[in-house]
């Protein structure tokens, strides 16, 4: 049994069958990549996992519990954090405040009226946040307005915001999309480090084969809403079906 079990999930948008009978099992403490050509249903699948979309058929179990019908904030509280294709951070807030919010969410749950106590007095949380920023080399930027940072920094901040919650499952939606080669390599190094240091399961959707093959323990190839193959990376490269559906398209 994997930590994330997707069974017979289907999703239809009007006349378009976006997902049809997707089965997927992500094992604990592995990095599972989902790849596929444009329109293969990767993002739809991801949105079904985090509560943004509700599948028409099938079930999604995380850590023994169904996620279907739950809203995104409830699913996050179960232990799933998501990194977006374009970094979603609190742009009007400073880097430090961006780090404090997930810590409050982790400690106090979805809602708690903390209207009188000062943020400045939360010493323990501040230390935790600073430690995390140190880990991603952003401590010197902690007082910066986060909207004014470079895209790479925003990505790292978003990743740090997700990691500080110590999620069981980290979902990455094309984390290197639109990045320069150097930034991409930095992100790969960061993710590798995360994988080694922490007990964390990672599911990653990615276009960039370089990223996929340097991180993934397991790869699922999705085409036209259904999984074609699931295998270890070394077997995927030469797989004829994959070449035909995905890599072949590029040649």
């Amino acid at each position: 049994m994997g930590i994330l079990e997707v069974k017979d999930v289907g999703k239809r948008f009007g006349g378009l069958q976006a997902l049809g009978d997707v089965n997927l099992s992500v094992k604990e403490n592995t990095c599972h990549a989902i790849i596929g050509p444009n329109g293969a249903g990767k993002s739809t699948l991801l949105n079904c996992l985090v509560g943004k979309l509700i599948p028409d058929t099938g079930s999604v179990m995380f850590d023994g519990q169904s996620v279907l019908g739950r809203s995104p904030h409830e699913i996050n509280q179960m232990g799933i954090s998501r990194v977006f294709q374009t970094p979603e951070i609190f742009g009007d807030l400073t880097v430090m405040e961006n780090m404090m919010i997930p810590l409050f969410a982790k400690r106090d749950g979805s809602y708690r009226l903390h209207a009188i106590k000062s943020v400045m007095n939360e010493r323990q949380l501040r230390e935790e946040a600073e430690q995390m920023l140190e880990e991603v080399n952003m401590l010197d930027k902690r007082h910066m307005h986060s909207a004014s940072m470079s895209r790479g920094d925003k990505r790292r901040l978003e990743m740090a915001m997700c990691l500080i919650q110590r999620p069981k499952l980290l979902l990455l939606d094309e984390p290197t999309a639109g990045m320069a080669r150097a930034d991409t390599n930095n992100t790969i190094d960061l993710l590798k480090e995360i994988k080694e240091k922490r007990d964390i399961t990672i599911a990653i959707i990615e276009h960039d084969m370089h990223v996929v093959f340097s991180l993934a323990d397991r790869i699922t190839v999705l085409a036209q809403g259904t999984p074609l193959v699931e295998d270890a990376p070394e077997n995927i490269k030469g797989h004829p079906k994959v070449q035909e559906a995905y890599l072949g398209e590029a040649h």
Partner: peptide, 28 residues
């Protein structure tokens, strides 16, 4: 002033800034 400087005040500014991130950070 106390509300502005409290975690609650910070959450309110977070709502103004990015509700998507707020949702995916486990906050309602």
């Amino acid at each position: 002033i106390r509300i502005f400087r409290s975690p609650f005040g910070m959450m309110l500014r977070a709502i103004k800034s990015n509700q998507t991130r707020m949702n995916y950070t486990g906050l309602n």
